[in-house]
Design a protein around this nucleic acid. Structure first.
Lengths: 148, 148
DNA sequence: TACGAAGTGAGATGTTGTCTCAATTATACG
DNA sequence: CGTATAATTGAGACAACATCTCACTTCGTA
């Protein structure tokens, strides 16, 4: 699914950051849980594995991991941010704007684009996220019935 | 840039929703401001044009407009959601994870994919958003110096 | 023009994210 | 293998962001 935990740990050290308990546990939680989790879910899961880890450290870990490209943040088409480990291979989301149900795709239309960006803008690409918004089959008939 | 305001207003009525003052002003603000705005910016701008509009109505309008595909929400690679009018044509973001500076692209690698999704999943595509994460040229040398 | 449903404003409430600072800990080095 | 030290942490205050409730207003229809 994504890079092995070991590889991620190594990466953190290689970038000059310490591999601390909060960081380790956050990564483990993200790797073991749903494909994408809300902040509160992550905090809860982390504190179940390691009750002495503070909330702030979870956010700080997510911040760092996002900067390193290990974690991606998405609004999933609404004003609720979710976090996920950056998938090793390309990964698109089909997000229903009514019910928020999500289909994950494993195809990629962007490999070539990504390469050209590096040379044209001097941009160091870490990964990308594609979100396609619309209504899933179920919600085309009864819009406005979103569960949340 | 995006569909004309008039077309959006028509669309709201066509979907059976009322074209109210808060909704009109939110759309005008999004059309007139930066390409993407934070929630608080939008609220401030709306209240400048129409001081009697409540905060909740701004959020409600954004919610509706998102469901209609008129507005898109993005986390811009971090835990801060921004809102923008859905661009008429394809629109990619290059988001720097260090400083959050953003480059906008006007090319599209997804037209074909989008079509095939409609038939394969019965998904009614409204639009898509591509976010490519990495470090911009300036931030490759001094990571960790993000302004926010 | 009057009616009814949809939408609204205000502010309480809930959630999410950030900050500060003394105490702790991971790593490099002797 | 200890020790120095700079990075990191935990707790909880704080701030920002988002949602909810409910009495009142307004849009669109007839």
């Amino acid at each position: 699914m994504s890079a092995s935990l070991h590889a991620i740990f190594k990466r953190i050290r290689a970038e000059g950051y310490k591999l601390t308990r909060p960081r380790r546990v956050v990564i483990e939680v993200l790797a073991g849980g749903e494909t994408h989790m809300g902040a509160s879910e992550i905090v809860a899961a982390v504190r179940q594995k390691a009750p002495d880890v503070g909330r702030a450290s979870v956010y700080r870990a997510l911040e760092l991991l996002t900067r390193l490209g290990v974690v991606q943040v998405s609004a999933m088409g609404r004003a609720t941010t979710v976090y996920m480990l950056t998938p090793a291979c390309c990964h698109h989301h089909l997000v229903c704007v009514e019910c928020r149900r999500t289909v994950e795709l494993n195809e990629c239309a962007l490999r070539d684009l990504e390469k050209s960006l590096a040379s044209r803008f001097g941009f160091q690409v870490q990964g990308h996220l594609v979100e396609i918004y619309g209504r899933c089959e179920a919600c085309q008939d009864n819009p406005g019935s979103a569960p949340l």
